[in-house]
Design a protein around this nucleic acid. Structure first.
Lengths: 334, 334
DNA sequence: TTATCTATCGAAAACGGTTTCGTAAATAAA
DNA sequence: TTTATTTACGAAACCGTTTTCGATAGATAA
């Protein structure tokens, strides 16, 4: 509750509310003298504008939303850091929403955004998302959306991604060069473009090297069933000698499985992961990782969004900004 | 921009705006018949209330703020998950702000909250925070604050913390039981209560066991200088045989230092850390950790805040909710 | 001298809801 | 039948800004 309002300042200075408002907005209509007087009074009285009154009238909220699955892993944490950094510099506020990989939650969240609550949206879709109506609906109501990481490239907007296909291709080739012959790929959702790109990078590399063994696993959200899926991998006959993890969350699980089944990394199994966290080097064994530039993805996505916000009539067309990932070779794939 | 407003529905149904508003709010003043008609029309027309108009009039934003240093480590990520979960169930929105350990940023953020932007605040103070005027100012303007993790216990509100003193005491005793004689403690900020509690737990245990060696290091935000501080520790004469890390962020750094200086864990140095992340078990060597119940801390803090919000005249008194941490013994301290 | 600017300010209408208060009709109480 | 009460709704004020549109006085141009 804003104790001091424009009206109070106006009364105090025997000016009109309009004049005070304009003075604080540094309008050309107001003389430098009164501006100084108003500014001083506002400061002294501790005036802080009511953002809701302001947003209502200006039809702009100075707020953006970040919609993500969750902040379980380090990737989204760093992305948010990047976003917040940029938002701050633009004087924007950041609302955060988690879908917990649920389409219905995502739909409810997006529905709310048609109210004008936010001026723009930064989002990474859930695993379940197999329709985009809830997204196009808010885009149609003139709220720009910028995707990052988990994108929907078919929509007419900007996607900030990494070179997933290439990274995955290179990762697969790397394992092949280490004489792996049976390489498995573990992803999460077949509907996610990011996952499909990685998968096809993996498959292309196999094809290129005439390797017929191909094994794509889908792990979900439940650690228990994921554990089963992963462990069954090593109990089967076509036991792999290399694994590419597409999901950071599965790292501890894979290490656990290998530990429990006494599968030795890297002698019996070479491992390589898409991830983004500092401790990979100090794991046992040190983990080869494909590092996504998470912080920069957040920054670039936010900057792109603010550019769209600046231009009232931005052209809505599909576009991809690709930030390269970096493979860091460590013992787990040696 | 909300394309369809109350006025439009009113006109469509030849009702007054007031009636429509009350009908949607399920007011007793409106007959069930008209309620049904209004609800149906609102649904069909795709009405979504403008939150800014609503907040302006109701003087409630249905929004809470989370103010934290940053989401660099897993702790705050999990806390936010817990907070978001609770906020969602209350129909609240979550604004997120990072101080980046800067007091002036924290002050600017809190200053803004005197505008009525948020109904309540969940916060973990920055390392630099050595004054609380900016916090009491918003509390005085009737915006409740609940602290978690990095708290200021002198303020008349609720703090959600873990049993830092006891955990640190137990951790120190554990190292002593492993026949460590020279145990160092690495904290971040001497102004933070959480750090002081851990430090005194450490010191009390030493005193209790008549150990005179006492070594408290302060590491800041800069990895380079932190590296120097940590490495100088092992170059000095009074080289420790045990270390307690109070800060998760320093784990990779410590492992790096030990690696570079060829200090072997745990034979030459036993290590133990306050942290909260799943991979500790798979580090080399597996790291003994004091796990904070991060997710629960977020949940409890949020629930406490919403309780305060529910009661308009909540009594403002200092109170601590202590959630116990859990020590998980692993090889690094064996 | 008169007409035209220019600079500076205020009245009032938005923005889109919520809430108070009044009122007419229907019902209950006397 | 008269009076009191309840039910169901609308008119209008209000939340605190922003913005449009005048209005006025003084300066300038014709």
């Amino acid at each position: 509750m804003p104790s001091v309002t424009l009206k109070m300042i106006a009364k105090e200075l025997s000016l009109s509310v309009a004049t005070v408002s304009k003075a604080l907005a540094n309008s050309y209509e107001i003389s430098e003298g009164t501006k100084a007087i108003v500014l001083e009074a506002a400061r002294k009285m501790g005036y802080i504008a009511n953002p809701y009154a302001s947003s209502l009238r200006k039809r702009r909220s100075k707020t953006v939303a970040v919609v993500i699955p969750e902040i379980a892993d380090s990737f989204f944490a760093k992305v948010i850091n990047g976003i917040e950094e940029v938002a701050l510099s633009y004087g924007y506020h950041v609302l955060i929403y988690m879908t917990h990989e649920s389409l219905s939650r995502e739909q409810a969240i997006m529905q709310d955004f048609r109210s004008g609550r936010v001026d723009g949206i930064l989002m990474s879709v859930s695993e379940e998302t197999d329709t985009v109506e809830h997204i196009t609906a808010v885009m149609d109501s003139n709220v720009p959306v910028v995707f990052f990481d988990r994108v929907r490239e078919e929509l007419p907007t900007t996607c900030v991604i990494t070179n997933d296909f290439e990274s995955s291709y290179a990762a697969t080739e790397h394992l092949i060069s280490k004489s792996c012959q049976k390489i498995a790929f573990v992803g999460n959702s077949p509907t996610l473009a990011i996952n499909r790109n990685r998968e096809s990078g993996y498959k292309s590399a196999l094809k290129e090297h005439n390797i017929s063994y191909e094994n794509v696993l889908i792990c979900g959200n439940d650690p228990k069933s994921d554990y089963k899926i992963l462990s069954s991998l090593f109990k089967s006959d076509g036991r792999p000698d290399g694994v590419i993890l597409s999901v950071e969350k599965l790292i501890p699980l894979l290490y656990q499985v290998c530990h429990d089944l006494k599968v030795e990394i890297p002698s019996q199994l070479k491992v390589l992961t898409f991830t983004n966290f500092a401790m990979a080097e100090f794991l046992n064994p040190p983990l080869t990782t494909i590092n996504q530039p998470a912080y920069d993805i957040g920054k670039v996505a936010a900057q792109t969004l603010f550019k769209k916000l600046a231009r009232s009539n931005h052209i809505a067309e599909a576009e991809s900004i690709v930030l390269p990932s970096e493979i860091i070779f460590r013992e787990s794939s040696n």
